[in-house]
Amino acid sequence: VDYIVEYDYDAQHDDELTIRKGDIIKNVKKLEEEGWLEGELNGKRGMFPDNFVKEIK
Rank of each mutant, 00 (worst) to 15 (best):
11 A>R: 08
38 E>W: 02
9 Y>P: 01
42 N>K: 13
55 E>V: 15
42 N>A: 14
55 E>A: 12
21 K>P: 07
37 L>M: 12
5 V>W: 02
6 E>F: 10
46 G>F: 00
37 L>H: 05
57 K>W: 01
39 G>E: 00
53 V>E: 03
38 E>P: 00
19 I>N: 00
8 D>S: 08
2 D>A: 12
32 E>W: 13
12 Q>M: 13
42 N>F: 06
57 K>E: 09
50 D>N: 08
29 K>V: 14
18 T>V: 08
1 V>P: 14
51 N>S: 06
3 Y>P: 01
13 H>L: 15
44 K>W: 03
15 D>P: 08
28 V>T: 06
14 D>L: 15
57 K>Y: 01
1 V>S: 12
2 D>S: 07
2 D>E: 14
46 G>E: 01
54 K>H: 11
32 E>S: 15
38 E>R: 05
38 E>Q: 06
44 K>N: 12
9 Y>A: 02
55 E>S: 03
43 G>Q: 10
4 I>G: 08
57 K>H: 15
23 D>T: 06
8 D>G: 06
30 K>Q: 13
30 K>E: 11
37 L>N: 05
39 G>N: 01
52 F>Q: 05
48 F>G: 01
13 H>D: 14
33 E>V: 11
41 L>F: 08
21 K>V: 08
4 I>P: 02
11 A>L: 07
43 G>F: 06
46 G>S: 02
39 G>D: 00
55 E>N: 04
49 P>V: 02
17 L>D: 01
40 E>Q: 10
48 F>P: 01
17 L>S: 01
36 W>N: 02
40 E>R: 04
9 Y>K: 06
45 R>G: 04
19 I>A: 10
20 R>A: 08
33 E>W: 12
17 L>Q: 01
1 V>F: 12
1 V>R: 08
26 K>F: 06
26 K>Y: 06
6 E>D: 06
42 N>G: 10
44 K>Y: 03
13 H>W: 15
31 L>D: 07
51 N>T: 12
25 I>E: 00
56 I>A: 08
41 L>V: 11
47 M>A: 10
10 D>F: 12
24 I>S: 05
24 I>G: 03
44 K>S: 05
7 Y>Q: 13
37 L>G: 05
31 L>K: 13
35 G>F: 07
17 L>F: 02
18 T>H: 06
32 E>Q: 15
11 A>P: 11
17 L>K: 01
10 D>R: 05
18 T>S: 11
43 G>K: 08
50 D>F: 06
43 G>P: 01
45 R>S: 07
24 I>P: 02
8 D>Y: 03
20 R>D: 01
17 L>M: 09
54 K>P: 04
1 V>N: 15
2 D>Y: 10
36 W>E: 01
30 K>H: 09
16 E>M: 04
21 K>F: 07
12 Q>G: 12
53 V>T: 09
43 G>V: 03
30 K>L: 15
41 L>H: 09
4 I>K: 08
19 I>Q: 00
37 L>I: 06
55 E>I: 15
41 L>G: 03
49 P>G: 05
21 K>W: 15
52 F>S: 08
29 K>R: 12
4 I>Y: 12
10 D>T: 11
17 L>P: 00
33 E>M: 13
37 L>E: 02
16 E>D: 06
44 K>A: 10
48 F>L: 12
47 M>Q: 09
13 H>K: 12
47 M>W: 10
41 L>T: 08
57 K>A: 14
54 K>A: 09
44 K>Q: 15
8 D>A: 07
10 D>L: 12
38 E>N: 11
8 D>N: 10
8 D>W: 03
11 A>W: 03
42 N>D: 15
14 D>P: 14
56 I>E: 07
40 E>G: 04
41 L>M: 12
37 L>P: 02
46 G>L: 02
3 Y>D: 01
15 D>V: 06
28 V>W: 02
11 A>M: 12
30 K>F: 05
50 D>E: 14
34 E>A: 15
45 R>E: 05
46 G>Q: 01
22 G>L: 02
15 D>L: 09
53 V>Y: 03
10 D>E: 10
47 M>D: 03
45 R>F: 05
56 I>P: 04
49 P>H: 14
12 Q>W: 08
31 L>Q: 08
48 F>E: 01
28 V>N: 02
10 D>I: 15
16 E>V: 02
50 D>P: 14
3 Y>R: 08
29 K>N: 13
6 E>Q: 11
22 G>F: 01
16 E>G: 05
29 K>S: 15
14 D>E: 13
8 D>K: 01
56 I>R: 11
25 I>G: 00
23 D>Y: 01
16 E>P: 00
22 G>E: 04
26 K>N: 10
16 E>H: 11
35 G>S: 06
25 I>Q: 00
16 E>N: 03
19 I>L: 14
8 D>M: 03
30 K>T: 05
47 M>R: 08
34 E>W: 09
14 D>V: 11
57 K>V: 13
50 D>I: 10
6 E>G: 05
43 G>I: 02
8 D>P: 10
36 W>L: 05
50 D>G: 09
9 Y>W: 10
45 R>A: 05
53 V>A: 11
46 G>H: 01
29 K>H: 14
56 I>F: 01
53 V>S: 07
13 H>A: 11
14 D>G: 15
40 E>N: 09
56 I>S: 07
24 I>M: 07
3 Y>M: 13
12 Q>N: 08
1 V>K: 10
51 N>G: 10
16 E>Q: 07
46 G>R: 02
47 M>K: 10
42 N>L: 08
45 R>Q: 10
57 K>N: 11
38 E>S: 09
30 K>G: 10
33 E>G: 14
34 E>D: 13
49 P>T: 04
1 V>D: 07
6 E>A: 04
25 I>N: 00
21 K>G: 12
7 Y>F: 14
49 P>K: 06
55 E>Q: 08
3 Y>F: 14
32 E>I: 13
51 N>V: 09
28 V>L: 04
2 D>M: 09
38 E>M: 04
28 V>Y: 01
49 P>N: 15
6 E>R: 15
43 G>R: 06
51 N>F: 06
25 I>W: 00
56 I>M: 03
19 I>G: 04
31 L>V: 15
26 K>M: 14
56 I>D: 06
52 F>R: 08
12 Q>F: 08
43 G>E: 10
20 R>N: 07
23 D>A: 09
30 K>Y: 11
8 D>H: 06
5 V>H: 01
46 G>M: 01
37 L>T: 06
49 P>D: 05
54 K>G: 04
37 L>Q: 06
54 K>I: 08
11 A>G: 14
26 K>S: 12
53 V>F: 04
32 E>N: 13
36 W>R: 08
20 R>L: 03
13 H>R: 13
45 R>K: 07
27 N>M: 05
22 G>K: 04
20 R>E: 05
25 I>L: 14
15 D>K: 13
28 V>K: 01
26 K>P: 02
35 G>K: 05
30 K>P: 10
4 I>N: 07
29 K>W: 04
28 V>P: 04
50 D>S: 12
44 K>H: 11
43 G>H: 15
47 M>N: 09
23 D>G: 04
22 G>I: 01
54 K>M: 08
14 D>T: 14
5 V>N: 02
40 E>K: 05
53 V>I: 08
56 I>Q: 07
22 G>W: 01
10 D>N: 14
24 I>A: 03
30 K>N: 09
47 M>Y: 12
7 Y>H: 15
57 K>I: 13
7 Y>D: 13
33 E>F: 14
52 F>Y: 07
24 I>T: 11
34 E>V: 13
2 D>T: 09
18 T>R: 10
17 L>R: 01
40 E>S: 07
35 G>Y: 05
55 E>W: 00
12 Q>S: 10
47 M>H: 12
20 R>M: 05
24 I>H: 05
